[in-house]
């Protein structure tokens, strides 16, 4: 469970203070499907980065699965990112010189998983995301949809409790974007928490819970049950 209370994040631009997040309180249960919407600059990415322990708040508390993680060391936070969190980005962020299979393998390498087990898990992931015949292709040889599937395979290879996706369809056309969303929804079906930042109202409305952000504050928090 993700519990944020009084989370504030301030950026300084010259002598200007930007309240990217302003006393945000938020509780997300394991297995929820949440979308975060709001105008550009409203703090969506900042919120996602703090939930994913990529960024630290200036004040406030963050309790993850019953444990305060705000003050953990860099190494301990890295460990939590590795084991509990999977990131999916708008620009995919694949390592250009590595093949699809090697990109998917990276989190396993960082976790010291033995090579034999890595091969099995990567092969399973390639099959699950329909990438088996693209295993040895480099990102430059893949389509946008395939790249994002590689990124999702990489995000899920460690079986995280939460997938954090920051505008995952931003660089894809509508139909491919919808396919990517349905992949994330499949993950939700199997119990993974999905938090997705999107501009696309239609895609955002498919989530069971929608957060509206503006000026670093949560304006609305709507729920509707699965269709």
């Amino acid at each position: 469970m993700i519990q944020l209370s009084g989370i504030t994040r301030i950026f300084h631009m010259g002598d200007q203070r930007i309240n990217a997040l302003d006393h945000v309180d938020l509780k997300i249960q394991n297995g929820e499907y949440v979308s975060i919407m709001g105008p550009s600059g409203s703090g969506k990415s900042t919120l996602l980065n703090i939930i994913g322990l990529l960024d630290r708040p200036d004040s406030g508390d963050y309790v993850l699965d019953g444990k305060t993680v705000t003050d953990l060391s860099e190494a301990e936070q890295a460990r939590i990112r590795r084991e509990k969190i999977g990131f999916v980005f708008q620009s995919f962020h694949l390592v250009p010189r590595l093949t699809a299979a090697e990109n998917i393998e990276l989190p396993l390498i960082l976790s010291d998983i033995p090579p034999k087990e890595r091969i099995t898990r990567v092969n399973n992931a390639l099959r699950a995301f329909d990438l088996f015949d693209r295993a040895l292709h480099r990102p430059s040889e893949l389509s946008g949809g395939q790249r994002q599937r590689v990124a999702i395979a990489r995000a899920t290879i460690m079986k995280p409790t939460a997938i954090l996706a920051d505008e995952p369809t931003g660089n894809l056309d509508h139909q491919i974007g919808a396919e990517v969303i349905s992949l994330l929804e499949n993950l939700h079906e199997s119990g993974t928490t999905i938090i997705i930042v999107t501009h696309d109202r239609e895609l955002g409305n498919r989530a069971h819970r929608q957060l509206m952000l503006r000026d670093g504050k949560i304006l609305a928090d709507k729920r509707h049950d699965a269709d």
Partner: peptide, 16 residues
């Protein structure tokens, strides 16, 4: 730089 950021996001230590 972007690759280093990605490695950190997927859980690499500074030491790695």
């Amino acid at each position: 730089t972007a690759e280093i950021g990605l490695l950190k996001a997927i859980g690499a230590h500074a030491k790695d």
